[in-house]
């Protein structure tokens, strides 16, 4: 065991990782500072349950609804996994939003953490994007009509509006093409962006340390 550890450490630098990432001193902070890790936790939960859902989900108008009925009724624990993913989405939006508010109220976005804030805001919008694209996937009445209206909204912008709508939908109507591109966005593009930005966000946090609680004289 000892030998294996030495062998791995020599190659991976486990000790260095432990020292740099885990065994570091940080200022004393309060419970609001757990919102960031809670956001990360929810992202991991969403990723895991989402990957499970893709095992049976079919992104086509013919089968999307039926395949979800199958997940809910035909597969063991399918209802639980979908339930966690469904409520996880809601909680993630809330927690990420509160994390943003915490950062704002405790002035953590100020020097030297401007870039951490920037990536964080991007992450907030990507999370909302996940909510918006994921909403369509069950292909039920609620999903269909909400997305019809949702993609209509940018259409009101003068000149380029109608084009944005048809870009989002992949055509003039909400169709199989829309479902396919929302699915692609939901499981590839947006998560890829989120993972990338989380990495940058975390790197910055480890490099700059957790911001301290503002004192009276700060």
């Amino acid at each position: 065991m000892e030998k294996l550890y030495t062998w791995l450490d020599e190659r991976l630098g486990l000790k260095t990782i432990y020292d740099v990432v885990l065994d570091r001193k940080v200022p004393k902070v309060n419970w609001f500072y757990t919102l960031g890790s809670a956001s990360l936790f929810l992202f991991v939960i969403q990723a895991v349950t989402g990957i499970f859902l893709t095992v049976y989900y079919v992104p086509s108008p013919d089968h999307a609804y039926d395949s979800i009925q199958f997940i809910m009724n035909g597969v063991a624990f399918g209802w639980l996994i979908r339930g966690i993913h469904h409520w996880g989405a809601t909680l993630m939006v809330l927690v990420v939003f509160f994390h943003m508010l915490r950062t704002f109220y405790f002035a953590s976005y100020k020097y030297p953490r401007e870039l951490t804030w920037l990536t964080g805001v991007l992450l907030l919008f990507l999370t909302l994007g996940m909510g918006f694209t994921g909403y369509l996937l069950p292909w039920n009445q609620r999903a269909y009509w909400a997305t019809t209206v949702g993609t209509e909204i940018p259409g009101t912008v003068p000149i380029i509006g109608p084009w944005i709508t048809s870009f989002l939908r992949g055509g003039p109507d909400l169709s199989a093409v829309t479902l396919a591109r929302f699915f692609s966005l939901h499981i590839w593009w947006l998560p890829a962006g989120i993972v990338l930005l989380i990495s940058v966000h975390m790197y910055l946090i480890i490099r700059l340390g957790i911001s301290s609680l503002p004192k009276k004289d700060d």
Partner: peptide, 23 residues
Amino acid sequence: GVANEPPADPSDSAYIPRPEWYF
């Protein structure tokens, strides 16, 4: 749990669209 919804029906114009609550 997750509320069961009827399948998407583009022909049903009586449906009242609602976005997800955070929108």
